[in-house]
Simulated assay, not measured.
Amino acid sequence: MSHITELAYLGVNTTNLSEWEKFAVDLLGLQLAKKTGQQLLLRMDEKAYRWIIQLDDSKGHAFTGFACQDESALKSLVQNLRDHNITVLEGDANLAAERQVEHIYTTLDPLGNCVELVCGLKDADTPFQSKVLRSPFVTGQGGAGHQVLVEQGVDRKKIMDWYGLLGFKLTDVIDQEMAPGIVASVAFLHCNGRHHSLALANMPIPMKMHHFMIEVSDMSDVGLAFDRCMDAGCEFEMTLGMHPNDQMFSFYVRTPSLFSIEFGWGGLVIDEKTWQVQHLEQLSSWGHRPGHVVAEKLSMTSQH
């Protein structure tokens, strides 16, 4: 069965393009590819873009682009979705040109999120160049990174079955008791060697996407980005720490569109043929303390 091979790009809504440009380019190290009065195109690698930031009355996740290997695989995947009574619309030449892909189809997942299925994401005419990074982002066969969607009360099996039609497979599950009787549950799914390109979170938060992870290839870049975000007065959702499942060393910083960016290094690459699903009870091995809690502790320390 044909399936997607990577999370290719992300679409984001914002009410302030200038704020997003400064955050993405000056703090995170993405490259501005194109800027209009309505959107920003941002690069992470040799591709024409990986991020579309579009001006809108709302803030947050707008759409996700998943890529197939070629046109034949894309058409086969679309037909399979339609055979399962899922509505899939073919995008016209204008949308394909705007997204800089060869072919594009659009659909909605069970959460109501817009999903774009594409092939042939084009390369840029010039090499990728960051203003601040020492090392390149980790993309390639692993795609742009990973996203964590909030389940919003929808049955997890229904969501997993839908994404299973795209080719996603379960990597592992973490169920952590945050307080007596309150459990945060996250299912992690892969579509290539990246430990997960998608995760589903059962958390009581009013947003479509909890965070999007971008990965660098030098650990120092994580520390340098952390310092840049701190100096800029950004809101940290979680401080430096490490996850036990994908072994990512990272921090979480709030974006101008309210969801967070996990900025990480050292993510696990799995062998899909031999991987065994794991069940864990801890979201972080160490660190990843809530930013406001750390700020309060530092404030109390300074008063003594």
Score class of each variant (00 low, 15 high):
L149N: 05
L149E: 05
L149R: 01
V150P: 11
V150W: 02
V150H: 00
E151W: 00
E151F: 00
Q152I: 06
Q152T: 08
Q152K: 15
G153V: 10
G153S: 06
V154L: 03
V154C: 06
V154A: 05
V154P: 08
D155E: 15
K157W: 11
K157H: 14
K158W: 04
I159K: 06
I159G: 00
I159H: 04
I159F: 03
M160Y: 04
M160P: 04
D161I: 08
W162P: 03
W162F: 15
Y163Q: 08
Y163R: 07
G164K: 01
G164E: 01
G164C: 02
L166F: 08
L166H: 02
G167H: 02
G167P: 11
F168A: 11
K169V: 08
K169D: 12
K169H: 13
K169M: 09
L170R: 14
L170H: 15
T171L: 05
T171M: 07
T171P: 08
T171Q: 10
T171H: 13
D172C: 07
D172L: 04
D172Y: 06
D172P: 14
D172N: 12
V173N: 12
V173D: 09
I174E: 03
I174F: 08
I174R: 03
I174S: 02
D175E: 15
D175R: 12
D175Y: 07
D175A: 13
Q176N: 13
Q176A: 08
E177Q: 12
M178K: 12
M178Q: 09
M178W: 04
M178D: 01
A179H: 02
P180W: 02
P180K: 10
P180Y: 03
G181M: 04
G181E: 01
G181R: 03
G181Q: 03
G181L: 00
G181W: 00
I182V: 15
I182L: 11
I182E: 00
I182Y: 03
V183C: 09
V183T: 15
A184E: 05
A184K: 06
S185C: 13
S185A: 11
S185Q: 13
V186A: 01
V186S: 06
V186M: 06
V186R: 01
V186F: 08
V186N: 07
A187C: 14
A187P: 09
A187H: 13
F188Y: 10
F188M: 03
F188G: 05
F188N: 04
H190M: 06
H190A: 08
C191I: 10
C191S: 09
C191M: 07
C191H: 04
N192P: 15
G193K: 12
G193S: 14
R194L: 07
R194V: 12
R194D: 12
H195Y: 15
H196S: 09
H196K: 05
H196M: 07
H196V: 12
S197G: 15
S197K: 02
S197T: 14
S197A: 15
S197W: 01
L198N: 07
L198Q: 07
L200D: 10
L200K: 04
L200Y: 05
A201W: 04
A201C: 10
N202S: 14
N202P: 00
N202G: 13
P204M: 03
P204K: 01
P204S: 02
P204I: 00
P206M: 01
P206I: 03
P206Y: 05
M207C: 10
M207H: 10
K208H: 13
K208W: 11
K208E: 10
M209W: 04
M209V: 14
H210W: 00
H210P: 12
H210F: 10
H210I: 09
H210T: 10
